[in-house]
Amino acid sequence: MSTSSTPEPHGPTAGGTGDQDPARASDRPPSGSQTPGRWGFFTGRSGLVIPLLLAAFATYLVVGNLTMSIPKGADFPGPTFFPWFLAAVAYVLAALLVVHYLRHPEVPAETSGRTYTTFSDWRAIAWCVGGFAAFAVLLEVLGWVLAAGLLFWCVARGIGSRRAVFDLVLGLVVSSLIYLTFGIGLGLPLPSGVFGLFAGGN
């Protein structure tokens, strides 16, 4: 692998240790050129979401600064000084990033040989994100064992497993094992949820 000459599709993940030279990336022939009809302005420019995010965050800081109730007699630099500075820098960077993405659209490298209408597999992401959102909502209602089992099932399905029943059992086994080790063995407070309804007590 280390001597392979094909470029790593996801080399720079956490730290960007790899090549991020946009000029070089655009040298590559766009792999999706077979389906030109589907390619519009935003193709390769979905990266604009990053400056959008940054500008939104800067706006959040600005609004927060303006609505902040600062006690009388706070010395300089008060609680808003640093955020003002950050918001200003963030706007500048967002503008620079917009220019960057307009001038250098990203063309994702495809190694599988097939082309898809979207670069990202949105269905898989939806399973994972939806599964986690459901987990967060249902955790205290259903209890750890069921909610975590469900999360496991959703993610496994999203990433490509197709054995629904087997996965469900496996998910419950994993969540149960965690419950037994961490909840019962180590005393982490994991909710019982619906199981609590079967409990005696009052």
Binding site: T111, D121, I125
Partner: peptide, 8 residues
């Protein structure tokens, strides 16, 4: 990974 694993 979920976004990419079935692509390549």
């Amino acid at each position: 990974v979920a976004a990419r694993i079935r692509r390549d």
